[in-house]
Design a protein around this nucleic acid. Structure first.
Lengths: 144, 144
DNA sequence: AAGATAAAGGACGATAATATCTTTAATCAA
DNA sequence: TTGATTAAAGATATTATCGTCCTTTATCTT
């Protein structure tokens, strides 16, 4: 239901919130900390940078840093940045007889999508990091 | 978010509820009525038959018929039959340190999945067919 | 200015989802 | 029993997603 890419992006953002503070951290270190394939994470971080969830800096001492405070980033923001939830706002069949109106079936599917948006918007990255009652995600290996 | 396969399966089930009554209808006619590629629909109907949402009969006069009354089939039943919603019931990373416990992040994702299940379970096929205030899905072309 | 570091970008593979085609098996009617 | 009809099943093609690799560009340090 949620793409692998979304899972990876979330791990990276949570890891940054937990381990980076304001400093930039290189892709390689984030990949190690989150058990995400390094080269693929590079692509995902690129997208997150384009969507301005993180800022990217090249060169020595460069890397990625969160562009917002963890309490201002929701799970929805991250998921939506890398694999946008496509709401069904009009008939996907493009039928002239339907016009803009959706049939009951697509209305039902879209209602579910709306619930997803709501649910994902309910959790911030800060909440994930701050929840000491639960295990942290990521790797067994030390988070360095 | 929802697969093409799920969309097709829903169209087929709704179409059957609307047009077939108790009679068996061949795959070809269902495909025409729903604008779904015929050969691909055949595969999907096969799955729906295996999941016992429909009954399949071969040979002349054969085809597919709903195995339950439209009011007893929900959108969730259909979606789940062809592309099951995979709930996140334990740490997807398989970390020893997590055990069965999910981190807050995966808990949040799973909460969204739960909402989807609830939302899709709220609508029955009968409701879709019975809603005269909205356009019907499927094709512009005559329904047969 | 020169070299080292790290992201950007493009090209390329691997895998999974979507879609098609062909053969086989079951069922019905004559 | 024969032929027509229709789903089952398996092989194959197409497309999107996931993942890797290599070259280029920007930035920092010396």
């Amino acid at each position: 239901m949620f793409s692998q890419t979304a899972e990876y992006a979330l791990r990276a953002v949570v890891w940054l919130a937990e381990n980076a503070g304001d400093a930039s951290v290189g892709n390689q270190r984030i990949a190690e900390g989150t058990c995400v394939p390094e080269t693929y994470l590079a692509k995902i971080m690129q997208t997150l940078a384009q969507e301005e969830l993180v800022t990217a800096r090249r060169g020595a001492g460069g890397g990625f840093a969160l562009n917002y405070e963890p309490q201002d980033i929701t799970v929805f923001d991250v998921v939506n940045a890398v694999s946008p939830i496509k709401r069904i706002t009009s008939c996907p069949l493009g039928l002239k007889t339907h016009g803009k109106m959706r049939c009951r079936m697509h209305e039902s599917l879209d209602a579910a999508l709306e619930k997803v948006e709501e649910a994902l918007s309910d959790t911030t990255i800060a909440q994930i990091v701050g929840d000491r009652s639960r295990p942290k995600p990521m790797c067994d290996s030390p988070t360095r």
